[in-house]
Design a binder for these strands. Structure first.
Lengths: 339, 339
DNA sequence: TATTATAATGATAACGTATACATTTAGATA
DNA sequence: TATCTAAATGTATACGTTATCATTATAATA
């Protein structure tokens, strides 16, 4: 059938077959490929040559079984179209590879199903789990802790003894946004958040309202919508339609902000920032483009990743490091969507 | 030390431990969890109860070893910030999960290193490999074929007997773009492609030039730049700076097109489409936003994914299906960046 | 050369699962 | 009840690696 009859046509050769060809024991082959030192150069070469000839590659699955770890690190992310998000995922994947591990990628349609997904993840005996923008249940966190699998929740504020949480200080950012608006003379506020990232949006809203309260302002139009450009437009439409006079809108995501801006300009013929000022969140690429020039918040993603991976690698090396919540301050990137 | 002394504090229980508690053999536990039928309901429940009590989860790694397949499907993608791309990756991941497999995600910084990455992928004895926008070497393709691992190259035209290629008909799309421009009366052309997706860009350029040639037009300014918004701007700057009169530019990617458009409008004060018409590629979200309203090409991503996963699942089920190149036509989405 | 110390290698037992085969049990029939 | 058949379960082994321990080969020393 096959044109190739060498050894075992259709499956990858094992170390045993390499050993046979190189005339050494299987253990020696294993030693060569697990990078041990006590090997005579001559035999090492003979083994490598035999391996080359057979197209041998160590079986990571089998290795995982004996070592009781897979070298896999899971990324669990909610399924959302968000440029900022995809940048994050790529960065996370890259860091995992730099840790000499492989990213096992799980997409989670609804946050409700997160526990189910993690349960699946655990079947792979991953070395660690990074959850993006979703909350891990207390029960699941306890279970992971019990079997010594480090979990980092990234970009979602949760308090949980057993897991590491790395997150932006969203409450403070909201507070900063309000103060920034106020300092520029704006007085009639609106907030557009997303129910896709509900917790995060709520935190930003809380900080926003806190600051307004400090200034003696109670009124603030609030819309919570899906995280899309269109929904941003729809939200501002709701706000503007009912004769509610606002002159400043804080959007808990650039995508929402861009949708709102275009609606403000093209549907209502209003000027930004003269009629309405806008602040966004995430500083996605498009925020800096001339048609928008959106003032927005930048998160310290790289520093957050440093913390995440410092924690993970310490855990993986068995070094002591304690869990907790690590908050990072956001920075306003000033452009021209606010006076 | 630990507050929990049940069985084996810090590692996940095995089927053996479950068997012990349920007073059955390990084989029976295995049978319950691999969904076999010949099990008395009573014992099945006893096993499930014991498993529940111990927090047992089958070890996918060990299962992979015996079955000689991991249930993993690798996604190998080049590292690029491209919204269209991230949408694709999410869709691919989702389909993999629907196939009851898990996506193992590899990011490849340079296309040169693809073979190296695939070599790593193969260590995990993945059930299949999906390569996005990168070419697999003939040698590597042959190797994968030999060990019966199906490979699909998505979104990159390559001819290779051993792998399945699913790709848009880029040559034809380029040809369509030129004809579209020409039918609207434009006569002075430029092309901006990306060296990040060089092969794809070249194909689109070839079709574009072919059509121009048919019309008796030889001249066409060409720029090949990295796939970014900024590079798109820089490219059009190069084209416009040297007194080269052009009135139509075809960009092999929306990101490039948006960058070019903003530069045309805000730096040169020219009007789109009156002074210069623009066609993009991919139909990313931003292309439809009012400031751009970009006429662009839409790829039949879902149909392409259908073909990809139909091929994969047939291969995985051992059904016969032959490799080959499957091309999909692109569709122009007409907006107002062309007269 | 004989003796040691050390480096290199081999033999073997895990790791947790699935499965072929052997055995037991339960249900059906006479 | 005895017998037979089929279903349920148990036993034992293999999957490809790593690691421990035992053994052999090599180099260093007297």
């Amino acid at each position: 059938m096959s044109h190739n009859k060498v050894v075992n046509g259709n499956k990858m050769p094992s170390s045993k077959e390499v050993a046979l060809l190189a005339q050494v024991s299987q253990a020696t082959v294993s030693r060569v490929f697990s990078g041990q030192t006590n090997i005579r150069e001559q035999t090492r070469l003979r083994v490598l040559e035999a391996a080359e000839k057979l197209g041998y590659r160590p079986n990571a699955i089998a290795r995982g079984l004996t070592l009781n770890r897979s070298n896999l690190i899971a990324i669990v992310s909610i399924n959302v179209v968000n440029p900022h998000y995809n940048v994050m995922i790529n960065k996370v994947a890259d860091r995992i590879q730099k840790l000499a591990r492989e990213p096992l990628y799980f997409v989670c349609s609804e946050e409700k199903k997160l526990d189910e997904i993690i349960s699946q993840v655990l079947q792979y005996r991953v070395d660690g789990i990074i959850v993006l923008s979703a909350a891990v249940s207390t029960q699941m966190a306890a279970e992971c802790e019990k079997i010594q699998i480090p979990v980092v929740v990234f970009n979602k504020y949760t308090v949980n003894n057993n897991i590491m949480t790395v997150c932006s200080d969203n409450v403070k950012a909201g507070w900063m946004a309000a103060n920034y608006f106020h300092s520029k003379g704006y007085r009639n506020y609106a907030f557009i958040g997303s129910n896709t990232f509900l917790g995060t949006s709520k935190d930003r809203l809380r900080g926003f309202k806190d600051a307004l309260f400090e200034k003696g302002i109670e009124k603030c139009e609030v819309q919570m919508v899906p995280y899309t450009y269109e929904a941003g437009g729809q939200a501002i439409r709701e706000i503007l339609s009912e004769e509610k006079k606002i002159d400043a809108v804080f959007c808990a995501g650039d995508m929402l902000a861009l949708g709102a801006m275009d609606t403000i300009k093209y549907e209502y013929g209003l000027k930004i920032p003269e009629d309405i000022a806008v602040i966004g969140f995430d500083n996605i690429d498009a925020a800096s483009w001339p048609p928008y020039s959106l003032t927005t918040f930048e998160q310290q993603i790289d520093k957050m990743l440093d913390t995440t991976f410092n924690y993970l690698s310490k855990k993986l090396n068995g070094e002591a490091i304690s869990e907790g919540v690590e908050l990072f301050e956001c920075k306003i990137v000033e452009r021209s969507s606010v006076l």
